[in-house]
Design a protein around this nucleic acid. Sequence first.
DNA 1: GCCGGTCGTCGAAGCGCTTCGACACTCTTT
DNA 2: AAAGAGTGTCGAAGCGCTTCGACGACCGGC
Lengths: 334, 334
Amino acid sequence: MSRRTVTISEVAKHAGVAVSTVSYVLSGKRTISADTRRRVLDSINALGYHPNAGARALASKRSNVIALVLPLRAGMHVPVLMRFASAVVTAARRFDHDVLLLTADEGTAGIRRVAASALVDALVLMDVELDDRRVPLLRELAEPSVLIGFPARPAGLTCVDLDFHAAGARCAEHLAERGHQEIALLGAPSVVYDRGTGFATRTRDGFAAAVADLGLKGVALPCEETFDEVYETVRDLLLDHPGLSGVVVHNEAAVSHVLAALRQLGRRVPQDMAVVAICPEDVAERASPPLTSVLIPAEEVGREAVRLVMDKLEGRVVPDSTLLAPLLAVRSST
Amino acid sequence: MSRRTVTISEVAKHAGVAVSTVSYVLSGKRTISADTRRRVLDSINALGYHPNAGARALASKRSNVIALVLPLRAGMHVPVLMRFASAVVTAARRFDHDVLLLTADEGTAGIRRVAASALVDALVLMDVELDDRRVPLLRELAEPSVLIGFPARPAGLTCVDLDFHAAGARCAEHLAERGHQEIALLGAPSVVYDRGTGFATRTRDGFAAAVADLGLKGVALPCEETFDEVYETVRDLLLDHPGLSGVVVHNEAAVSHVLAALRQLGRRVPQDMAVVAICPEDVAERASPPLTSVLIPAEEVGREAVRLVMDKLEGRVVPDSTLLAPLLAVRSST
DNA sequence: GCCGGTCGTCGAAGCGCTTCGACACTCTTT
DNA sequence: AAAGAGTGTCGAAGCGCTTCGACGACCGGC
């Protein structure tokens, strides 16, 4: 199989042109007559030529690879991550780039290594935390980078994320539109708030702001992820707030437990209790009943991150902060 | 920041040696006196030298990058995938390799591209299906590859996976040891069996074989993933098999629904019904009650796949098939 | 005191590509 | 008819590294 690898000079010889001409046909950086282009392209096909990535990177100082850096805390959000990653890869390919996967195991050393060795042209960091130790490094790198999520001091960085503030607010508004007066937010486990993860806090703030604006009664609680803890939380919530008729769940792992707990506590959804979730679409759809939800637009976030990082690579100026509008999908739980 | 990039010849000059000497210090391919080595290493540190990946790949014909190819069906198993991926990256780093992430969007073209362009030295494919269209391509590639999962005709390929046959059997044995006589297996959605995904079928076969061996009564059913469908399945199962006292669930998404359904149908776990799951450890731990489970050893599978592919790169001979023994963790559900 | 053998180092030849300047044409414009 | 302005193509100079053959220095054995 796979005979000796074909080089650009063999293509040139086969087409009867200079090596540089083949290169220009491929890159389009100089005008080439239609006729010559045809011949070169034919030779490329005939010989099955693929440019050597290393040689290209060496000569052009561009590897056409971007790094995708996984979050520090591997446990979090795991399912969504894969969709981000997949979206980033797909988007990168549209810009003729490939994606190198980096984990946090190496700490910042990995980032430094791939940047300094010119293995990658640019970086996308997933699931950035408020106090993210990778952030200072990015500021001193020559390579452009984009963060998914917001650190505490985002000045000078480029960040993309779902507008969680708006998402929290949107859920409250939706419940208000449905006539609910007293509502609750069940959020992330308390440890997530403690370590100051941006998105959890921002959702809660948006929820609280909308509740105040709309003159509702509202309460926001952290929510653990085992059934028993969720059950207790829900039970106490119902005891403490007898008038409660709507709940927003912003905790993917707890969604099914909240529904199960309500079921056991004799509350029907949506008749006795309206439920809105902020979670991936498939989780919302698969729940019973299917949940009205704010989607986490993983694909869109990933795509946007790549678009931004490519713009930066081309030297274009991009906004520091890109917030993607939440989209509420109404299903049968409200 | 990041002043002009440092090259090997600057290091050589700084240390007062030839370029090739620096190279040999780094690669260890020729003996270098301790004294010279020290001086070179000092210069490398002083200047902050990092070898250029492209130049290295060009000269040595090794990119030190392996491709990790995501499964064709993105929807499947999503959480486990991330753990595989993460394990593969970590393991690859131990062999001084990085990982390029490839999706199925491009079909086989992506694989062909990164191989032909020498962007990667080797490939690891995740979640291979029985009739996987990427498999024929691998056979004609010069680059070594390892599959996670088994295709229908694995001859000439290198495959790694959990021994699902043994896992199914192990669950049945465990229930038998606990004194259960009549047991059931709730498996993947029927569409998964229809498309012949290897692991689902193999688990079922192992379960059936053990049931026969042990003289139990056993039934195996596919299992959908919405609560309502699961509820029906469980209800019918209990009606049809009044003596049933143990159930094995091999469907990550359905685990919590099965538990909720049993709860609603008035069966206590483990008193009225023993439950064993084949799923990731965290899912089993977080369920209520925590489930006895066979772990899917994602980390180990990933690590093993990398080890094998590195062996092949070095020209060593490796076994065609590597099956990882299932490990049963007993928790409070049996 | 000479020979063969390591040992440690060097210089140079690529690896396959991009890019720059040069140059031969062919059109326009005067 | 000459000067200028494009076009389209070529040759050569690297990009930063690895690797090969060469070669002095030094060793022990005779």
